[in-house]
Structures are given as structure tokens and as C-alpha cells.
Design a protein around this nucleic acid. Structure first.
Length: 719
DNA sequence: GTTGCGTTA
DNA sequence: GGTAACGCAAC
């Protein structure tokens, strides 16, 4: 695109000029720089709490919280009236509001393949499931798509989305003002002529319109410097006075109406209320959606962004909420956006590198990041903070089976909607204490016979690798997580994926009989996700934390502190000495040249049935490979394929042909033993494990790595 | 391209 | 506390 070169470097080119016919009519002008760009951010009010309220069929006005173990993870608005907050304890909350409804999130109970809501939950034996919420989230997304047929929709989290309303807004604008679609013959500059002045706007269906002169009602804002005159005439009069409506405002107003209709539709279909922000870009829309809550929306016009941003803590801005924002705050002793406005671009760039133009812009309400039409989810994580800590492989294996079971359910479910969906890799991560978590991954070969067992097979393999260095008894894991990444829809051959992947649904996690005549997917193309009929909004914007490898930012870094192993890492150890620092510093990792041996090189581990370079797409239905997992079984499945639990004498058998019977019973046995194990955990089974001093594996590597981490933390100290 | 880690939300 | 996306650096 022509914007890619030259002009796009200046933030002032297109968006600051007047709106022209080109902005309205030229497909080439539909970029992130189009002044009519209209973006909405929408989030569900106290999402989890609302989801539970509706699931339970409760009226809107009763106070309800959603709990996870002993913590509160969502508080609905009626409950907020009692002063209940996210960090209030359950007991306090119940005191503050005796008739409070407390609903715990769904959990998987041991050995069960489906999450549910139970009377009693125990973090030692249950695993939280957010699946019900993901399902609601998808329903909401579907309504967004139903209502916003033309622009991209980006799921930002389980309860938030960005919507690019621009294409719909432009259509509507042309519909409302047909004369705009005809460039007058006498237009001085043809398609680049400025549009005629717009008629006044009727904002009555747009929701709140943030006033240009600052806060009118101080509902959520502490101090507004009251610029406006005394008359006490309120919002209406204020609007009249600043009604220098522009075509950009028209776009926002139309966008707001679309958003209002969309929110109404969500409520009509699902009974969820949500709040939205409508602005010219993502960062402003996001801030804006939080302005009036719940069940409300706010429009931020270009002319009002100064007043809107000025007194705001700049770390409230998306992407500045972390270490980067903190470092900037420290560097300039700044708190509000207004404070930061005093810092020149040159100044910022000399300290934080060329890429800080992005920060400079966003502080001025400019953000060119695009709304990505995100289709499917790209990863699935099942994570568990284990208590008591896991100290033995057996305990580890137990949780692996729980996590595998969950992933099994989730992948299956996802495949019902997206046939052929399959993860490239399986990742295991573990954490000890407050150390950063460590992960190991492996390709995840395709199988028709997906099951919890199949996942466990690979999970155990990773486990063995990951815990290799802990063989000395230093194992004390407090978190275990298993995830699928690189989730993608494989495409089948001539028959089409639907055919290829269609198969009888299994109702349990028991692996079905092995089939050796499986085919493999014929081809593996990526599907293009962008199917929009309008021209794509080009990615011309620098992302907040985009690659910053320009010589300027790295070479300008002069480090004074102890020399880091990586030259790109700034090593400022205190905030007192000013140094140049690239934004990329925040991306640099703590990796070290001297890492423990076992991390330096991956072992040439025996391949997991990777038969050719199709790698993970290779079919792997060889259930006998389960044998590669060393059993912890004290007793064996008998030759007749039956088994009796030595602990509780429960007999197990299966109705199937003799070969299948054995493998089914094997699986049942594993599951059953896991259950016993889980029960033993409840009784403090962990305590029998002798405690050993932690021993660092390898040479001094571990220590060095740790030191480094702390060094950086010391500089980027959390608020 | 893969692996492992870090940052942000 | 449980998820998710994405980017980098070193293989």
C-alpha cells in the first residue's frame, strides 16, 4: 500500500486533515489512518457473576458473587452496593450482605470427565473449569457477528471484544447522506476534496457522549478542572455549545447506534448486560467502555480526548499497565497523561528508543493498532495450582491425568464446532515456589482416537524430561499446567475435512479399539481467516511492543551496571541514573548464556512416532505406546482382561472383544487408581515424602540465571 | 521452523 | 488463581 512508505511515518498526515471523499469512497483509504475509523470495545459487566446469575435463573437485582476456592472472582452490581469487592474475603462478604448468593465456579471432580457444580469443592481434589464461561463467551461473540456483519471482530478475552465498525458506519453514512457518494463536478481537488460541512448530529441514541470541556458529572473522576461556565445548565447545554459536529463525529454516532443495537440484542437473547466504548481507536475505546458501568456506553469524540485523558493515570492505558508503564513513570516522575504530555518526542526517544513514538501517540489518543479478526482460539491451557505441592512422580501423574482429561474434553468440544481442529504441540509447564515456570513441549501427532489417555501418553513423556533434574528429590511443584498450542484447522483431501474427521463420538475417555487402516490428512493448508469483503485495514501501525531491533534503540543503550550477557538488555540497577533504554528492553528475556546443562540442549529424545517431516500431523493410533509410560500399578490386568482393585476389591471388566477388553480395563484401572491416589492426597498423602534440600542441577548456571532475574526485577520493581 | 521464556491483560 | 495472545532469542 502506498501508506506503507513515507507519509505513514508521520502521525499527522491523514488523520489530522479534513475528511475527503476519498476517505469515504476509496477502498484504498480504508486503513487504520482513515479519520472515519470507528472502533468499539465491549465488555460484559461482571461477566462470571452474570453468567452464574442467568444460569441459576435468578433475577437481575439480587447480590451474587462468583467464587473460586476462598476467593471472589466476580461481584455483580447489586452486590457491589454492599461494598463487596474482588479482594473481599468470602466471610467478610457474607457479613456485609447476609443474603448474598455465593456461587462457586464449575470444577472437575476426580476421575470425572465432565465439569459440574457441586455442593462442596476442595482445591486438593477438584480442578476449576472455566468452560461454562467460554461457552457463554462464544454465544456473545456469535451475536456480535450476527449484528456486525461487515467489520472485524476481535475477541480480547473471555468477556471483552473489539469491533471494527468502520465498514458498517461508512455504509450507513452514505445511506443517510446519499449526496456524499457523488463527487461534485466542481470539486476543486476531485476525490481529495473536503466534504461539505455536516448537518448537526442527533446523539440521542448514542449513549453518553464525553463532553469536550471536561467532566460534567464527577461520577467516576476525582477532580475535573472545571473549565465550563457557571450556568449550571448541565449536559444538554454543554453539548449545544460544543456542537461543532464533524463527519468524524457522525461516524462515531452511527457506530454508537450500531453498538447500542448490538448490546440490546445480547440482552434480548442472553440477558447479559454489557458496557461499551466507541472511539476512533482501540486504546480509546477500551478506556471509554469503563467510563459508565454497568449497562452503558460512552462515545469519545476526537475533540474530547484531551479532556478525557488529561487527568487519567497513564498506566490505565492498555499496554502501559505493566513494567513499561512503570519504568516510564519512574523515569519522568509522571503519573497522569497530562504529566507525560510535557515530555517531548525527542526526549522520550532518546531514553526509550525510536519506537516510543507509539507511546507518545497513545498519550495523545492516537492508536493505529488494528482490530484483528480473530477466529479460533490458538491455544488451550489447563492449569492447576496444586496443594499440597507435588513431590513425587505419582502425584504428578495424577494431576497430569486430570489436566489431560480436561484438555480432552475441551478439544473435543472445540472440534464439534471446528472439525479438524488440532494442536501442533502439547506443552507441559511446571513451577516451583516463586521461580519462573519452566516448560517443555512436544509435537502432538494427530489421532482419530483422541482420549485422555492419548494426551497423558505425551504429557508423561514431557513430565519425565521436565523432572529429570529433580531426580535428586528437589521436586516441590506448586503449579502444573498442560496446554495445546498452535491450534489450527487441518484441511482434508478431496473428501473434505468434514468427511475425513467425522467419526463416532466416544462417550467416555476410554480409548476405542485400535484401527490400523487410518489415513492421514491429505493436505494441510492454512485457511485464510480474513474473509471480509471490504479492503483489509492495513497493519501500518507499530504495535505497542513491536519488534524493536533498530540499531538506534539498541546501539544507543549505554549500560553502566554489571555487564549483562545480552548487550540489548539495559542494566540500569537504580532509577537514579538516567540511561537510554530501548522499549525492547521489556521484551528481552532473562535468558542467560550459562544456563544449566539440561537446558542448553534438548536431549535427542526418542521420537514420538514422528515418522516423517509431517511431524505432528502424522497419525498416531498406536495405543500400545502407552506402555512407554512406566506404570505405577501395583497389580496387573489379568489375562482374561479383568482386574480387581487391591485397595477396595472393586472388580473391573468390559464388554468387548478380548484385545479391546484388556486395553479398556487398563484405562479403567488407571482412572480408578488415580482416584485412590487423589483420595490419599486428601488424607495428607504428601506428608510421607521426605523433605530434601534443594540442589541445583548442573554447574553454577541456575544461580546465575536467578541472579539475573532479580537484577531486572530490582530495576523494574513492581508498583 | 521449533523451543522456552517473558510481558501484558 | 486460571487463561490467553504474542514477541523474542537461541537453536
Amino acid at each position: 500500500m502506498s501508506f506503507l512508505s513515507g507519509p505513514s511515518k508521520r502521525s499527522s498526515d491523514i488523520s489530522n486533515g479534513p475528511v475527503t471523499y476519498r476517505h469515504l469512497l476509496s477502498p484504498q483509504a480504508m486503513t487504520v489512518f482513515n479519520p472515519l475509523r470507528t472502533i468499539a470495545h465491549c465488555d460484559i459487566d461482571a461477566a462470571y457473576a452474570q453468567f452464574e446469575q442467568i444460569r441459576l435463573g435468578l433475577p437481575d437485582d439480587i447480590p451474587l458473587i462468583c467464587a473460586q476456592w476462598q476467593s471472589i472472582i466476580a461481584v455483580n452490581y447489586p452486590a457491589r452496593k454492599y461494598g463487596i469487592k474482588r479482594f473481599t474475603t468470602l466471610d467478610e462478604a457474607r457479613k456485609m450482605c447476609p443474603h448474598l448468593v455465593v456461587q462457586h465456579v464449575a470444577t472437575y471432580r476426580n476421575g470425572e470427565s465432565e465439569a459440574g457444580y457441586w455442593g462442596e469443592v476442595d482445591p486438593q481434589t477438584h480442578k476449576v473449569s472455566l468452560d461454562p464461561y467460554r461457552r457463554e463467551s462464544l454465544k456473545i461473540l456469535a451475536i456480535f457477528k450476527e449484528m456486525v456483519t461487515k467489520g472485524e471482530i476481535e475477541k480480547a478475552s473471555i468477556d471483552e471484544a473489539f469491533l471494527d465498525l468502520t465498514p458498517m458506519v461508512i455504509d450507513k453514512l452514505l445511506l443517510l447522506h446519499p449526496y456524499l457518494s457523488i463527487i461534485p463536478d466542481d470539486a476543486p481537488e476531485g476525490i481529495d476534496s473536503t466534504l461539505p460541512p455536516p448537518p448537526p448530529i442527533n446523539w440521542s441514541k448514542a449513549g453518553n457522549v464525553f463532553p469536550i470541556n471536561g467532566m460534567i458529572d464527577a461520577a467516576s473522576q476525582e477532580e475535573g478542572d472545571d473549565q465550563r461556565s457557571e450556568d449550571g445548565d448541565g449536559e444538554i447545554e454543554e453539548r449545544r455549545r460544543d456542537c461543532r459536529d464533524t463527519w468524524e463525529d457522525w461516524a462515531l454516532c452511527i457506530g454508537a447506534e450500531i453498538m447500542k443495537d448490538t448490546r440490546d440484542e445480547v440482552f434480548r437473547q442472553l440477558h447479559y448486560t454489557c458496557s461499551a466504548g466507541i472511539a476512533h481507536n482501540k486504546a480509546m475505546a477500551k478506556l471509554c467502555s469503563a467510563w459508565k458501568k454497568p449497562n452503558n456506553q460512552t462515545v469519545l469524540r476526537g475533540a474530547a480526548t484531551g479532556a478525557f485523558l488529561r487527568d487519567r493515570d497513564f498506566t490505565d492505558i492498555r499496554t502501559l499497565g505493566g513494567k513499561l508503564g512503570n519504568a516510564i513513570a519512574t523515569e519522568y516522575s509522571a503519573k497522569t497523561v497530562g504529566d507525560m504530555l510535557l515530555v517531548s518526542l525527542d526526549e522520550m526517544q532518546s531514553r526509550f528508543g525510536e519506537e516510543s513514538i507509539w507511546v507518545y501517540n497513545i498519550l495523545r489518543g492516537i492508536d493505529h493498532t488494528e482490530v484483528k479478526g480473530r477466529v479460533a482460539t490458538k491455544s488451550m491451557l489447563a492449569s492447576k495450582n496444586v496443594r499440597p505441592n507435588v513431590r513425587t512422580p505419582e502425584q504428578g501423574h495424577h494431576w497430569l491425568s486430570v489436566l489431560s482429561g480436561e484438555l480432552n474434553v475441551r478439544l473435543r468440544e472445540a472440534r464439534e464446532v471446528a472439525p479438524g481442529l488440532w494442536p501442533k504441540t502439547l506443552v507441559l509447564s511446571t513451577r516451583q515456589g516463586i521461580d519462573p515456570s519452566r516448560s517443555r513441549q512436544t509435537p502432538f501427532p494427530f489421532t482419530r482416537n483422541l482420549s485422555g489417555e492419548y494426551i497423558i501418553k505425551y504429557a508423561r513423556k514431557l513430565w519425565d524430561e521436565a523432572t529429570q533434574p529433580m531426580k535428586n528429590g528437589s521436586m516441590k511443584l506448586n503449579n502444573i499446567a498442560l496446554s495445546f498450542t498452535g491450534l489450527e484447522r487441518l484441511e482434508g483431501g478431496q473428501q473434505g475435512i468434514e468427511n475425513f474427521f467425522a467419526q463416532p463420538q466416544l462417550k467416555s475417555s476410554i480409548p476405542p479399539p485400535i484401527k490400523s487402516e487410518d489415513q492421514r490428512p491429505a493436505l494441510l493448508n492454512k485457511e485464510s481467516s480474513s474473509t471480509s469483503t471490504i479492503p483489509t485495514i492495513n497493519n501500518l501501525a507499530k504495535r505497542p511492543l513491536s519488534p524493536d531491533q533498530t540499531p538506534s534503540s539498541s546501539s544507543l543503550v549505554s549500560s553502566a551496571g554489571p555487564s549483562p550477557k545480552k548487550p540489548r538488555l539495559p542494566t540500569l540497577h537504580t532509577g537514579t541514573v538516567k540511561k537510554k533504554m530501548g522499549l525492547d528492553a521489556f521484551l528481552s528475556k532473562k535468558g542467560e548464556s550459562s544456563t544449566p546443562n539440561y537446558y542448553v540442549k534438548r536431549e535427542e529424545s526418542p521420537s514420538l512416532n514422528v515418522k516423517n517431516d509431517l511431524k505432528h500431523f502424522v497419525l498416531d493410533d498406536d495405543e500400545d505406546d502407552i506402555g512407554l509410560v512406566e506404570g505405577i500399578n501395583p497389580s496387573k490386568v489379568a489375562e482374561d482382561g479383568t482386574w480387581t482393585c487391591p485397595k477396595c476389591s472393586h472388580p473391573f471388566t468390559a464388554e468387548a472383544s478380548s484385545e479391546d477388553k484388556a486395553s479398556i480395563v487398563k484405562a479403567l484401572k488407571q482412572e480408578h487408581e488415580d482416584w485412590h491416589f487423589a483420595m490419599s492426597l486428601q488424607d495428607g498423602g504428601d506428608s510421607s515424602v521426605p523433605k530434601r534440600p534443594k540442589v541445583a542441577a548442573g554447574s553454577g548456571g541456575t544461580k546465575k540465571k536467578k541472579k539475573k532475574v532479580e537484577g531486572i526485577k530490582a530495576f523494574f520493581k513492581p508498583k
